[in-house]
Simulated assay, not measured.
Amino acid sequence: MNILKNILSIIGGIIIVGMLVAFVKFDLADKMSKASKLDPKAMGAYMTMFDAVLTSGKSADAMVRRVKINSDVSTEDVIESMKSIAGDANMLQVGDSRMADEYDHAGKRQRYIRILHYCAPNIAKTFIDYSVAYGAFMPCRILIVEDDKGDRWLVTMAMELMLFGGHTLPPEMMKKAEHVRDTMYKMMDLGAKGDF
Rank of each mutant, 00 (worst) to 15 (best):
V94G: 06
K34C: 10
L190W: 04
I144H: 05
G135D: 03
E160R: 06
A60C: 10
A136F: 14
T55H: 14
I14L: 11
M188S: 06
G57M: 10
M188H: 00
K31T: 04
N90I: 01
E160V: 07
M43G: 12
F164V: 02
D101G: 10
P139C: 05
A177C: 02
I15S: 08
M99C: 11
F23A: 13
M63L: 14
H167N: 12
A62T: 04
G87Q: 11
A120V: 02
I142M: 07
M19H: 08
N122M: 04
E76W: 06
S56G: 07
A106M: 15
K149S: 09
R66L: 14
V180I: 08
S81N: 07
Q110D: 02
P170Y: 00
H105E: 13
T126Y: 04
G135T: 00
K37R: 10
M49E: 12
P40K: 05
M19Y: 15
I113N: 14
Y134R: 03
M1R: 13
N122E: 06
E76R: 01
M159K: 09
L190Q: 02
P170R: 04
L4M: 13
M47E: 15
S59L: 15
E178L: 15
I113H: 15
K149I: 00
S74N: 02
I128M: 10
A133E: 13
D77H: 00
I14A: 12
I115F: 05
S71M: 02
M99Y: 13
M138G: 01
L28M: 14
N70M: 03
A136Y: 15
E80W: 08
I3R: 10
M43Q: 15
N70Y: 00
I144C: 03
F23L: 07
C140Q: 12
M188F: 05
D77K: 02
G13Q: 13
D39N: 06
V21P: 01
N2F: 14
H105R: 15
A100C: 09
V180P: 03
L154Y: 05
K5T: 11
L4A: 11
L163K: 10
T183Q: 06
A133C: 04
A136P: 12
A136G: 12
L8M: 09
C119V: 01
K186M: 14
S36N: 07
V21W: 06
R111H: 11
I7E: 13
G87T: 06
S84V: 02
S97W: 15
S56F: 07
L143N: 05
N6K: 08
C119A: 05
K31S: 09
T183V: 05
I123M: 04
V53H: 07
K58W: 08
I11P: 07
A177P: 00
V145Q: 11
M47H: 06
A100V: 07
Y46S: 04
D96V: 00
P139I: 00
L116V: 01
S71F: 00
P40R: 09
G107R: 08
I69M: 01
S56Y: 01
K37S: 07
G44I: 06
K34N: 12
R141D: 03
I3E: 15
T75P: 02
T183S: 05
K186E: 12
E160H: 00
G135K: 03
V17W: 08
F26P: 08
